[in-house]
Computed example of a mutant assay.
Amino acid sequence: MSYAIIGFGKIGHALAKAFARKGIEVSVATTRDPKSFAADAAAIGPTIIPKTLAEAVKADIIFLAVRFEAHPDVAKVLPTWKGKTIVDVTNAYGVPPEELGGQPSSKFVAKPFSDGRLVKGFNHLLAGVLDQDPAVHGGRRVVFLASDDDAAAAEIGTLAENLGFSPINLGGLSEGGLLVQARGKSWGRLIFKDLIKFDG
């Protein structure tokens, strides 16, 4: 299984650190030349591999850590996303609901990624929190997941566990996705919930 993070801002960096902590290789890409952020990637760890966008999207699982407005540009990189799982880490805060056609933001994001399997996840933690080790006070930091594809949600749930998080599946995008989305000037009820699960 191969992994890529598209977008290397604060959230992209935080996700890369999560992979580095566990020694899991992950590609990182932006629209810029990989040489321009190679030093940043190397500073995080040897398993963080800078690539071009065209190379990075060959991965099996792709974290979409770009600004919400940029997701259609990423979608155009491939003619089809069949066989790929896209983790939507975006937040559509400031985007009027009418621009989304009244849909949950993740359903809107899923459209241009034709044939891909989309999972909403890792978007409710602030970069400064996501940046930290998820092992906290003897428990594990929670990440919420929502998807209309149960197998994809399970796949990302397993990855989240491998990264040290405790995944909680909220169900489909129309139900669970609403709890962890932003759009217009509102936030879903579970956004910014910094929860820890204790295994007992």
Rank of each mutant, 00 (worst) to 15 (best):
L118S: 12
L118F: 10
L118Q: 15
L118A: 13
V119D: 03
V119M: 09
V119R: 00
K120A: 05
K120S: 04
G121N: 06
F122Y: 13
F122Q: 04
L125N: 00
L125H: 04
L125S: 00
L125W: 01
A127I: 05
G128L: 06
V129A: 11
V129P: 01
V129F: 00
L130P: 00
D131A: 13
D133C: 12
D133R: 10
D133E: 13
D133T: 02
D133K: 10
H137Y: 02
H137M: 12
H137L: 13
G138L: 06
G138D: 05
R140K: 15
R140T: 06
R141E: 11
R141V: 04
R141W: 05
R141T: 10
V142A: 09
V142S: 05
V143P: 01
F144Q: 04
L145M: 13
L145T: 04
L145K: 05
L145W: 05
A146H: 02
A146P: 01
A146D: 02
S147N: 07
S147Y: 08
D149P: 00
D149G: 03
D150E: 15
A151K: 12
A151D: 15
A152F: 08
A152M: 14
A153Y: 07
A153F: 04
A154K: 12
A154F: 02
A154G: 10
E155P: 11
E155A: 15
I156A: 05
I156S: 01
G157L: 13
G157A: 11
T158E: 14
L159W: 08
A160G: 03
A160E: 02
A160Q: 03
E161M: 14
N162V: 13
L163F: 09
G164K: 11
G164H: 08
G164M: 11
P167C: 13
I168S: 07
N169A: 14
G171R: 12
G171Q: 14
G171K: 14
G172P: 02
G172M: 07
S174Q: 14
G176L: 07
